[in-house]
């Protein structure tokens, strides 16, 4: 799954620690999500959508795997 967390965070001049605090997760979780190594749960994705005041699909996009 691709996401735009890094871009959206940079637009607001937030550090990874700032975003982690706002989403109530650890900084390591933000790092892993931004690098695409970890896909957040639906509640966390919705929380990010509420924080950035954007639809969830504008932040997270599915990457269909090749069949």
């Amino acid at each position: 799954m691709k996401n735009r967390l890094k871009v959206l965070r940079a637009e607001r001049d937030w550090t990874q620690a700032d975003l982690a605090e706002r989403l109530e997760v650890s900084r390591q979780t933000i790092v892993a999500i931004e690098k695409g190594k970890y896909d957040p749960s639906l509640p966390l994705a919705f929380k990010a959508a509420r924080l950035f005041e954007m639809p969830i699909e504008s932040i997270f996009q599915d990457e269909p795997s090749a069949i």
Partner: peptide
């Protein structure tokens, strides 16, 4: 109290 990734 850990977040979801730390729990994993």
């Amino acid at each position: 109290d850990l977040d979801e990734l730390q729990q994993k």
